[in-house]
Simulated assay, not measured.
Amino acid sequence: MATIKSLNKWANAHTYYPLDVVRVALGVFLFIKGVDFMSNHSQMVEMMKPFQDLPGGMLIMHYILPAHFVGGLLIVFGLLTRWAVAAQLPILIGAVIVNFIGVMNGVNLILALVTLALCVFFLFYGSGKHSADYYLKMQK
């Protein structure tokens, strides 16, 4: 808990509007990706082919959509950002692995790596000063 408090203090002292814009853009991207997966079921099934023989393969698909929807919205508002980002990490690591197990798609690989890097950054940085987390903390 002390580590999170020290990270929050550092992030609030070094917060900038461009980082908030990046956080909001990341959340919007994840939400749109969830909508895309839901509306294009065949694409989702095709991406899941390398994992279809694993136990719990169907659970993976049912984890991705809600994690992108809810996590994307939480990241946009800056509410429970670290938890929302932590929920995205297994999905993004899987997205990188899919490119090496299945058919290599350079654009998807770069997109997954950039999103993974941003999520790791916001896992440590948090939501920043211009967020619902900060606002709720200041209401105490």
Rank of each mutant, 00 (worst) to 15 (best):
A2S: 14
K5R: 15
L7A: 13
L7V: 07
L7G: 07
W10I: 11
A11C: 09
A11V: 07
A13H: 14
A13G: 15
Y17H: 05
P18K: 07
V21H: 06
R23S: 03
A25N: 10
G27D: 03
V28G: 00
L30R: 00
F31E: 00
M38Y: 08
H41A: 14
Q43W: 10
M44Y: 07
E46Q: 14
M48N: 13
D53S: 12
P55H: 05
L59K: 05
M61L: 15
H62E: 10
H62D: 08
I64G: 05
I64V: 14
H68G: 01
F69Y: 08
F69K: 02
V70M: 00
G71N: 00
G72L: 01
V76Q: 08
V76R: 05
V76Y: 05
L79E: 02
L80E: 07
R82V: 00
A84M: 07
L89E: 02
I93L: 14
A95Q: 01
I97F: 15
I97Y: 15
V98H: 11
V98K: 13
F100W: 12
M104P: 13
M104T: 14
G106F: 11
N108E: 12
L109G: 13
L111K: 11
A112T: 03
V114L: 13
A117T: 12
C119M: 06
C119V: 02
V120N: 06
F121I: 03
L123I: 01
F124I: 04
Y125C: 01
G128Q: 09
H130K: 11
H130S: 06
S131N: 13
L136I: 07
K137E: 12
M138R: 15
Q139H: 11
